[in-house]
């Protein structure tokens, strides 16, 4: 038990987080480590982090599982939530109701979108990469159709904007929400039957089937959950930017996969730790902000993400133990 909690990947990610902060202090000056910046960075993590959790679940399910439709569904959820809310509630009169209606609408789309993915992959047996590529286009198409391609402005709703951007007791609320959701996902993976079945199925789908695991149902529920996580991401995006648009965050598809792979989630399936995904998301955010603070060209950032992804795929899991000298036989 003890050695598993402190596995090499986790230590590595802690090290990376710390190293980037130290590098930033050296290379860019005091502003990076200011409270404002940490809050600013923390508020940028949740939307991508939630998508990365969804990708993690898909990867754990094995057989090359992945979810490419996350951000498209998030945007669609925001758009539909907005359209329902704006048609039924006046935000200047009842802001809380407006937010609640918006959120419920978004979550509903997450449920539907997740169910579509789950049905295609779990019951129709479509490979997840093809299925989610298709649903990504479908969700995007619907979003464009509903909005004509233009952004939907929610306008300045103080309550919502504060939720998205104003820290409470030093912690951005969206970040707190992200952590709570991450904890819930971790608990589900560790303590529920579904979680155990998911890991086993990802580890060896044939043996799982032989052992009586309802493989199709587990797959359905996995992608269903990923869809819901995506819709929460959509709500967070709307809170942060006060607008929803069909093409927001197109770079998130790759970034979410990068976070999952960097977190040691095995693309072949069967393994992944939530705490590592959270640390990986924060590491990426720190790096991203560091690059911006250093005024590095954004192309370098894209290049860096590409190199990191290839590196981590090549190593699959970083094990510092191979670097230490061999212990003598006892």
């Amino acid at each position: 038990m003890h050695h598993r909690s402190l596995d090499p990947q986790l230590l590595f990610l802690l090290f990376v987080n710390a190293a980037v902060v130290v590098a930033a202090m050296v290379l860019t000056g005091p502003e990076f480590t200011s409270a404002y910046n940490f809050q600013s960075m923390a508020s940028q993590v949740p939307e991508l982090g939630l998508l990365a959790l969804g990708v993690m679940l898909a990867m754990i399910s094995g057989n090359g599982g992945i979810d490419l439709s996350g951000i498209a569904l998030a945007n669609l959820a925001g758009i539909v939530g907005y359209q329902i809310a704006v048609a039924t509630v006046d935000p200047s009169v009842a802001p809380l109701s407006y937010i609640l209606v918006f959120s419920c609408g978004a979550l509903l789309i997450g449920v539907i979108g997740g169910a579509i993915n789950g049905a295609l992959i779990g019951y129709a047996g479509v490979t997840s990469i093809i299925a989610t590529l298709g649903t990504q286009l479908f969700f995007t198409g619907v979003a464009v159709g509903l909005t004509g391609g233009s952004a939907q402005m929610l306008g300045y709703i103080p309550m919502f904007d504060s939720f998205g951007n104003v820290p409470v007791m030093g912690i951005p609320l969206t970040f707190a929400l992200f952590i709570i959701i991450a904890l819930a996902v971790a608990a589900m993976l560790k303590f529920t039957k579904f979680g155990t079945h998911l890991f086993l199925m990802g580890s060896n789908a044939k043996a799982a089937y032989f052992a009586g695991i309802p493989v199709r149902s587990v797959l359905f529920r996995t992608f269903f959950l990923s869809g819901i996580l995506a819709s929460v991401a959509g709500i967070v995006i709307a809170a942060r930017t006060s607008s929803v648009k069909w093409d927001y965050g197109t770079s998130y598809v790759l970034a979410a996969i990068l976070i999952a792979v960097m977190a040691g989630v095995r693309p072949q399936g069967g393994y992944g730790r939530v705490v590592c995904v959270v640390l990986s998301a924060s590491a990426l955010q720190l790096l991203s902000s560091l690059f911006n603070f250093m005024a590095l060209s954004n192309f370098f950032r894209d290049f860096a993400w590409g190199v990191l992804l290839l590196m981590f795929l090549a190593f699959s899991r970083f094990d510092y133990r191979t670097w230490l000298p061999m212990r003598r036989p006892s």
Binding site: D247, G249, S251
Partner: peptide
């Protein structure tokens, strides 16, 4: 940003 993405521009 390296590509036309409002999210990236916002982050910058």
């Amino acid at each position: 940003p390296g590509r036309a993405d409002a999210a990236q521009q916002t982050a910058m």
